[in-house]
Design a protein around this nucleic acid. Structure first.
Lengths: 319, 319
DNA sequence: AGATATATACTCAAAACGAGCATAACAGGA
DNA sequence: TCCTGTTATGCTCGTTTTGAGTATATATCT
């Protein structure tokens, strides 16, 4: 309390703006040649804005011409050293991360922002086709080194448990919600190239694991994916990403794209219909092959009825 | 970006430090005669502290001599006008709220901080004995006024729905997790006395509903209760509040104290045991009457086994 | 028509859940 | 000692939810 100046910081607002098209979950990033990708971000101006969220909406609107529908605060990061431009620099920025969902209507219009498949930054998170080879080929060996390099036995035990919980084994399977835990583990183990950049021990014998991002933006994106994967299950937020009408398979593919797993088709249909989340429109699509599927729409009334349920994942066993 | 000074704010860290003794969920508040209760809070010093959380732990340790075990970030509030000392004043503080769980060991030692039953601030949230009378006698009538005073028909509809979702009706019951939604509704409706203090329309014909708190601390506490009520169900966090050994009824009473509802005893036992959350110690207590109960301990191993489950609420129907 | 592909309906067993009954183990008083 | 009140603990039973299929319907293409 002595010198008020020493408590002064700048607040940065970062947004993971997400949309899904054609089974590709994408995030809007600011891309410049030669630099790491960044999430759209800007400083919070306490004079101009009444709330943090309105500040975010304003400059996202200015920069990307997007009208954000659903917006949710994720987390506030203030770690020293994880928001550096160049090694050694130490401007203190506290960054508040947001998750926003949008429909990617109209044309791309923001200056140098592009939609990017989010699995480009997290190649180990997409299990839709199969378990990503990078896990067994690169990640787990590198993490074993991390365990082995522990200063003492009990620390090694802790590290081993963390690896098991994050990446699973025979007993405990894959938990698609642990996106942040996995990224943080890789960061601490120096496997992810932000670690070296931030001046932490980086294991440079390893080819970079996923694309790097500016500042702590990959951490914010990990938080966003984790939150969305979890929230989807108990709140009907997927519909923020869907067009006005859609087939049940399209809905399922969107959920799968986000969760990075495959679902059981018949049971997915049962869940969604039984919960009254959607209603048929009576119209059908005309697919190139196969039986036409009915087009459904989101029943907005569910938001006013029961404590709004989400889209449960009817998990599929490995076939 | 023009003038960097205009982006400068102070970050306040506030902590809802929670413990449960004898079925009373309590929160540590700083109490001064003539002033509203406050959560322990202090500014974040970016020079001295590497992370927000370490800043919090440090000054909470200094101020309360408590060693926080479990700490979790809740939310970052930056609303103009909700962190005022006196009406009209407008120091811009962004406050990061935290939830901390502790065991209330040893003696109270902090200067003027005291443990307070949290239902003192939220009398409508405790349904353990019965539905709190204040809901039907004061809250719902006042909220009906709020609905009636809507500027137009569609706004009235929205307000009516919010009231229904927050406080339930015959169809949708009570959702104990909507603590924050309820508080915010009461704030907007001017029923809670912070509203008048912050210069928003306050309905002063109503006797104050629960104790007021300083700044936006009642909102932070609402967030904390909501988060704890939810998290308890899928993560074994209650055990942070329990002594080393306890009977299953003591555990149940703690869960009930937090959730503000009653649980089915036999089913609670079944859930907790089947999930392997606890193990018997072979020792028994000696109660004044009735059969002695076995003392259990938390199985710390669950944290290393399956994606750690929480204490599900085996809800009791109204008898 | 037959092959192929997708949509949708229905079945069936296992697991989880909600409610309650039954019995066990203690204290104190008749 | 036996009865009563009280709490703990074990067990049952019907319902719901879930996971995994099988069966059938409706398209297109050859």
């Amino acid at each position: 309390m002595t010198n008020p100046d020493k408590h002064v910081v700048t607040i940065g607002l970062s947004a993971a703006i997400v949309s899904v098209v054609d089974d590709l979950p994408s995030v809007l990033v600011v891309h410049a040649a030669g630099a790491d990708d960044a999430l759209p971000f800007g400083p919070f101006d306490p004079v101009a804005h009444r709330t943090l969220e309105s500040g975010l909406r304003t400059w996202v609107g200015e920069q990307t011409y997007l009208d954000l529908g659903y917006v949710e605060q994720l987390y506030t990061f203030g770690d020293r050293g994880r928001h550096t431009l160049k090694p050694g620099e130490n401007a203190r920025v506290v960054s508040v991360g947001y998750l926003a969902l949008t429909k990617q209507l109209g044309e791309r219009n923001a200056p140098d922002s592009v939609w990017r498949d989010w699995y480009r930054y997290f190649p180990w998170e997409d299990w839709r086709i199969e378990k990503p080879a990078v896990i067994d080929e690169m990640i787990l060996p590198a993490l074993e080194e991390f365990v082995a390099s522990a200063p003492d036995r009990s620390c090694a035990e802790l590290r081993r448990d963390r690896v098991r919980l994050c990446f699973g084994d025979e007993d405990i399977g894959w938990d698609e919600e642990k996106v942040l835990e996995r990224y943080e583990l890789l960061y601490e183990a120096g496997i992810v190239s932000e670690a070296a950049r931030d001046g932490r021990g980086g294991n440079d014998r390893i080819s970079p694991l996923g694309d790097r991002m500016m500042f702590d933006h990959r951490r914010i994106l990990a938080t966003a994916i984790a939150r969305l994967r979890g929230k989807m299950k108990y709140r009907p937020v997927v519909f923020e990403l869907m067009p006005a009408s859609f087939t049940l398979l399209e809905l399922q593919r969107t959920v799968e794209a986000i969760s990075g797993t495959r679902l059981h088709k018949q049971n997915f249909r049962r869940l969604v219909e039984d919960q009254g989340l959607v209603e048929g429109t009576g119209k059908f699509n005309s697919p190139p092959r196969g039986r036409p599927a009915e087009l459904f729409r989101f029943r907005r009334e569910v938001l006013r009825e029961r404590p709004s349920p989400g889209v449960k994942l009817a998990r599929q066993r490995t076939p």
